[in-house]
Nucleic acid binder design. Structure first.
Lengths: 140, 140
DNA sequence: TTTATGCTTAACCTTGACGTTAATGTTAAT
DNA sequence: ATTAACATTAACGTCAAGGTTAAGCATAAA
């Protein structure tokens, strides 16, 4: 399997991005696929990995104001339920469910961020040992 | 200190948001300050806490494409340095510094997210005990 | 009392991150 | 050989999240 190449629609299916988004990332110089003679974009596995990282970095984030509003509203509702204490089991259970979903969402984001952090920590360790090596060489 | 009230500029200074942003959040119904007779907005401490939570929820996220690009570029540069192994100490140290900054940034975001998760976990626990209480009462 | 500063609404402007459409070229299958 | 299903660029549209400007009240200090 040496260097299989993909066209944009395949890449779109693999990554979940639209073709428009993929081309847009190229405009921003985030990726640089090669081209066929007739100018079709061709993506390597590496390109695709890179796109997946972009997606993951984006997803680890995004909470827009509408989502923030929902989050705050959910909190408020639950506090009201706890305060007056007379809610039905159905109401309570549906709110338990909603909170669980929020927590899962947060957990996912945290996971993405920790993966990114790990990447950088690895690089940091390797850079430090390179630094030491060079320092030793200079000492000679 | 019973219920001190703040005008919008003070709130802007306290929260770091522009007045425009604060008014915009009101348009979106994220906050509802009271008004003076001459229609000046008046914010309670509670309002301000709420605004701070909004800011924190927003910040815990946001990585735009430009930032993603920088991140990927930094990674690439470091990998090149590690690969050819002949960089100067100055180069290495400056890259160590940049990576450290990235890690700190990620750490901050993770911190925000974990604080939010804790809020929800507390609510979840309290909801569950309310549920049990109600279940017991219904059993009678 | 004037002046500076701050507040209000309203309306238009901007930027990022794409969506959509149009006009046209390429390739694969029948 | 034609058609269907892909691809290309270019250009305009859209939506969120504000920025900016204008025109006019409100209020505090000199």
């Amino acid at each position: 399997m040496i260097d299989k190449l993909y066209k944009i629609e395949q890449v779109s299916n693999i990554t979940g991005l639209t073709k428009r988004a993929i081309r847009y990332y190229e405009d921003l110089d985030l990726i640089r696929p090669r081209r066929t003679e007739s100018a079709y974009r061709l993506y390597t596995e590496e390109d695709i990995e890179r796109i997946k990282r972009i997606v993951s970095l984006k997803e680890s984030l995004a909470f827009n104001l509408a989502e923030i509003k929902q989050t705050l509203e959910l909190e408020q509702e639950v506090e009201n339920i706890l305060f007056d204490g007379t809610a039905s089991l159905a109401t309570i259970n549906s709110h338990i469910e909603m909170i669980r979903r929020q927590i899962n969402l947060i957990e996912e984001k945290v996971g993405q961020l920790l993966a990114t952090r790990k990447k950088f920590e690895d690089l940091l360790i390797r850079l430090r040992s390179l630094e030491e090596k060079i320092r030793e060489e200079e000492a000679k």
